[in-house]
């Protein structure tokens, strides 16, 4: 028995050391050598989820790089922001998509739900702090270890193939052709009623948005929150009151560019939350014009928040 215990314990210890080495060394190398490049002329970086991913066609906005990624909560955006800003000093302005669904508890699932975590965590695990790990482990201990394994495998393969370039893999403009048929009214069951009460708010997502802002401020970047156009029937618009309250309470120091009601037609939308190619073309051209006209230099936040046309929701 004595011999068995000694052999088993040494095997287990050796295995743990090996696993640690496999998990940490490639992770360290990825963190050290990873490359997050943005074109030298691009001074504006845009981060966010699928709304901004589909709304800003950055080929039409020369100074802007769209780094949004669908189903990305601020937790993962934060990791990305750190790397892009530290490696691209030419970025002077950071735009962060802030729209109605980003205060909802759905964002918690985007952060530690298995499907999302297993996709996003392996990408960004190398850049996370211990507190970030703790947060995920606390909320989804069951699958956190699985995701650590997947992350270790991802990093191991990156290290083996010397493939440290994240450029183009962490987001960008996403083109959607056509429109899904939009019903004349919002299906009642789809309305997230809970979004209007406090318990349905994702405090984690809000905290990480604050972290992103603080990090950008620490790097002396101009930060703007931006809301891209949403269809008037978009279900999450239901939480507008709560959304405004949170913005005023936690982010009143940050300029808010609100294009929620930007005038678009039904066939400019792929669905209630996303612009299609046609809509993105109109909106991006408009945004480019506003940037050229000094929108991001103005200090008058009130004027920034007002769209300059009335909404057209018909047709």
């Amino acid at each position: 028995m004595h011999r068995f215990l000694i052999k088993t314990i040494s095997f287990v210890l050796m295995s743990c050391l090996l696993i640690l080495a496999i998990a940490l060394i490639p992770g360290y190398m990825v963190n050290k050598f990873s490359k997050f490049s943005v074109k030298k002329d691009n001074t504006i970086a845009l981060f966010g989820h699928s709304h901004s991913e589909c709304a800003y066609n950055d080929t039409l906005i020369p100074k802007l790089t769209n780094l949004s990624h669908s189903a990305e909560s601020y937790f993962y955006t934060f990791q990305k922001v750190k790397k892009y800003l530290s490696q691209n000093p030419q970025i002077t302005t950071v735009l962060i998509e802030f729209s109605n669904n980003q205060i909802d508890t759905k964002m918690d699932d985007w952060t530690w739900g298995y499907t999302y975590m297993s996709n996003m965590f392996p990408q960004y695990a190398s850049f996370m702090s211990l507190a970030d790990f703790e947060l995920l482990a606390k909320h989804n201990s069951k699958y956190f270890m699985n995701c650590v394994g997947i992350a270790a495998r991802t990093n191991f393969i990156k290290a083996l193939s010397f493939n440290y370039d994240y450029t183009g893999k962490t987001g960008g403009y996403f083109k959607i052709e056509g429109s899904r048929p939009l019903p004349s009214n919002n299906p009642a069951g789809k309305i997230i009623k809970a979004a209007s009460n406090k318990s349905a708010i994702s405090t984690t997502n809000i905290q990480y948005l604050r972290k992103i802002i603080d990090y950008c401020n620490g790097m002396h970047k101009s930060v703007f929150l931006i809301r891209s156009p949403q269809h008037p029937l978009y279900e999450y618009r239901n939480n507008e009151a709560e959304f405004s309250r949170i913005r005023e309470r936690y982010f009143s120091d940050i300029k808010f560019l609100d294009f929620n009601n930007f005038p678009l037609k039904n066939d400019d939308f792929a669905d209630f939350g996303h612009l299609n190619f046609k809509g993105a073309l109109k909106f991006s051209a408009y945004i480019n014009q506003r940037i050229m006209n000094g929108m991001l230099n103005t200090v008058n936040t009130a004027s920034l928040s007002q769209p300059d046309n009335k909404t057209v929701s018909g047709n």
Binding site: M14, L18, I19, I22, S118, Y143, N146, G149, A152, R153
Partner: peptide
């Protein structure tokens, strides 16, 4: 040890 490492790396959901 290779088996242990492969189990760690490839264990999914």
């Amino acid at each position: 040890y290779t088996l242990v490492v492969v189990i760690f790396l490839f264990t999914g959901k």
